[in-house]
């Protein structure tokens, strides 16, 4: 099983972002530990992306897709050419989650879609009694969309205990902080009021994430699960952490080299800044 080392995943994200001269680095960095923990120790991956019995990771906030690409690359579901040829003419990996890529479940980017598709996948598994889990990562900015709350209402009504709604609460959306743009208030309280079983953790603490996911899985309730992961947009590299410009900024040779150097430092170094 691959290690899904967060620093290595972030280096893959930087490689993609630099070679493709693309954006959304901050969106990917905030969910790296989440993606790492899910793929490493919580999801049953079966025989590969086409295995209909595997668990699902639905990236509803499609802007963070480079984090998932990095994990799929570790799994061997994507190749080095996919990573280093990012955004070349005629290649298959796009800037937002796209279900035509094996291993990606939904086509996102237009926000507020993926969670509903995840709810449908969870409902299908629930009705068939397959015990498949659906983990859906939703951005806190994405939670502006009314369809997110439609989906949560539905999941609670239909008792989809195999669905875990994970909020990447990085406190930013495209044009500013969530507090400035559209304040969600206490997101965990909101989810709880919709009937979800809630855990709330530091989304960069892998041990805490793993423990929370384990507790949610073991919980006896038949309600859907909600995990609020408090994260830092751009986490993992000193100059991208907490700076919303990395929603839009492209890497230069200099920033790429500095970011890669930080991420290559020994554990306990700047990686966990």
């Amino acid at each position: 099983m691959p290690a899904f080392d967060p620093a290595a995943l972030r280096r893959t994200v930087l490689r993609m972002a630099y070679s493709g001269q693309t954006v959304h680095i901050g969106c990917a960095f905030s969910i790296i530990e989440l993606v790492a923990v899910l793929y490493r120790s919580h999801m049953r991956l079966g025989s590969g992306p086409d295995d209909p019995t595997r668990d699902y990771l639905v990236l509803s906030k499609g802007h963070g897709v480079m984090a998932q690409y990095a994990a799929l690359h570790e799994l061997g579901w994507l190749t080095d050419q996919d990573i280093d040829g990012y955004f070349r003419d005629g290649t298959r990996l796009k800037g937002l989650s796209d279900a035509h890529v094996p291993g990606l479940e939904v086509s996102s980017g237009s926000l507020g879609h993926g969670l509903s598709v995840g709810v449908g996948l969870a409902l299908a598994a629930h009705r068939r009694g397959t015990n498949q889990q659906v983990y859906a990562i939703v951005g806190d900015g994405e939670a502006n969309e009314g369809s997110i709350w439609e989906a949560i209402l539905f999941a609670a009504q239909f008792r989809l205990s195999n669905l875990t709604v994970i909020i990447d609460a990085n406190g930013f959306q495209a044009m500013g902080t969530t507090r400035e743009v559209m304040d969600l208030g206490r997101i965990a309280d909101k989810l709880a009021s919709f009937g979800l079983v809630i855990e709330e953790v530091d989304g960069h603490d892998e041990a805490a994430l793993g423990a929370a996911l384990t507790r949610l899985r073991a919980h006896p309730s038949d309600a859907p699960r909600g995990l609020v992961a408090h994260t830092v947009k751009g986490h993992g590299v000193s100059f991208t952490a907490g700076d919303n410009r990395w929603h839009y900024t492209r890497l230069t040779a200099d920033t790429f080299a500095r970011g890669m150097a930080e991420l290559s430092a020994p554990a306990g170094g700047p990686t966990h800044a």
Binding site: G112, G114, S116, V119, G120, L121, S147, A151
Partner: peptide, 13 residues
């Protein structure tokens, strides 16, 4: 909106 997304998920499965 959610209904159509749910239908898509069901169809995928």
């Amino acid at each position: 909106q959610n209904m159509v997304g749910v239908a898509a998920g069901l169809a995928k499965a």
